[in-house]
Design a binder for these strands. Structure first.
Lengths: 193, 193
DNA sequence: GCCATGATGACATTGCGTGTCATCGCGTAG
DNA sequence: CTACGCGATGACACGCAATGTCATCATGGC
């Protein structure tokens, strides 16, 4: 095929994960990652904007949000669109990836800089949901609040899903947290339909 | 007094704000800030962990959270404690600072790195609220969700308060957003549609 | 067979952030 | 009054992240 083996990006990602786990994020230099991947430092930065981004190389949230709004029932309530969409996506795509998510989470939790970056990913998720809601005609303030709420639910549910002893489905955890939030806000549960 | 003029930190903060507004955040170097403040680069980093932190030198949120829980009615509902506390603090301390908040907000919005840092400040706020709620005996999940919700309300209300044409009180905006969120989450009262 | 394209290498550069030691005024013990 | 420790700063060196720029060279279309 090419002059170069064509999986440069994947090799960089693999090398980075390995080194971060072996030595820690801060102690790993970009030249080290590049060397293990058989590439140069400059090439690393052609594939990833900075050293932190390599951790999110296979971030699934943008794809999730696109699918959620692409498959959404036109009649459904805004929040149901998002929560049901999250559940469907998680059942199909997240449950089989627990090991990889665990690896990434452990690395992120070990470094303040990566924690900060994960907050940007959370904000990006909220922003994408907000955009989707706006396109459905949801008013701006409501869209922002529901998007932030959805991101909070995902964030907290993901942490619980990663830390749990058992194997409760991610979607169930999200749904339970939503009910807990409704209760804390003083709202009644919707009558079953 | 001291050998040195005793307001090094304040001088650094002033110099940084000026230079960020004159040249932009990215185009301003730490040596420039230090020079304008009559200090050295090394001293800058003794007062601020990094170049971004200088923007938050007078961050009021930690103090706000301490006061909220110190003055909280022991009987009040968790969410009311937080929202009422925010309103009281904002009425007393925020309304007079709009000009300064506007300056900071403009700088933050101009730079992706500062936006990312502001997300950490939001997370710190949520974490502090969560801790306060836990100490009041609120269950862990509820405390996390209410803390995230409170942080979202503050974040969005602050943006609206900064961008507004008029001068609606910050506390009123928070309260309105909370009602909007309740409406968006409470699906049980829907006569039609 | 020639050339545009695109990915990579090689090299230089800027600036953030840190470690380390020296300096020097101040307060305090003796 | 002197000596000493303390604390803030200066001076200097350094590693590394991140970017700009030009060269290289296989591939695929013409």
């Amino acid at each position: 095929m090419s002059r170069w083996t064509p999986d440069a990006r994947e090799r960089l990602e693999r090398a980075a994960f390995e080194l971060f786990e072996e030595q820690g994020f801060a102690a790993t230099t970009v030249p080290q990652i590049a060397e293990r991947a058989g590439l140069t430092t400059r090439t690393f930065f052609r594939h990833f904007a900075d050293k932190r981004e390599v951790i999110y190389a296979d971030d699934q949230f943008p794809r999730m949000v696109r699918r959620i709004f692409a498959e959404a029932d036109a009649e459904a309530e805004p929040l149901e669109v998002v929560v049901d969409g999250i559940r469907r996506f998680a059942d199909q795509e997240l449950e089989g990836r627990r090991a990889k998510v665990l690896r990434r989470t452990a690395i992120i939790r070990s470094d303040p800089g990566l924690l900060e970056r994960s907050l940007r990913k959370r904000a990006d998720l909220a922003g994408a949901i907000r955009t989707g809601l706006l396109e459905r005609g949801v008013p701006s303030t409501t869209a922002s609040l529901l998007a932030q709420t959805s991101a909070s639910l995902v964030e907290l549910a993901l942490a619980d899903w990663v830390d749990q002893e058992g194997d409760r489905p991610f979607g169930d955890i999200v749904a339970e947290h939503l009910e807990a939030l409704r209760a804390a806000l003083g709202l009644e549960r919707r009558p079953s339909e």
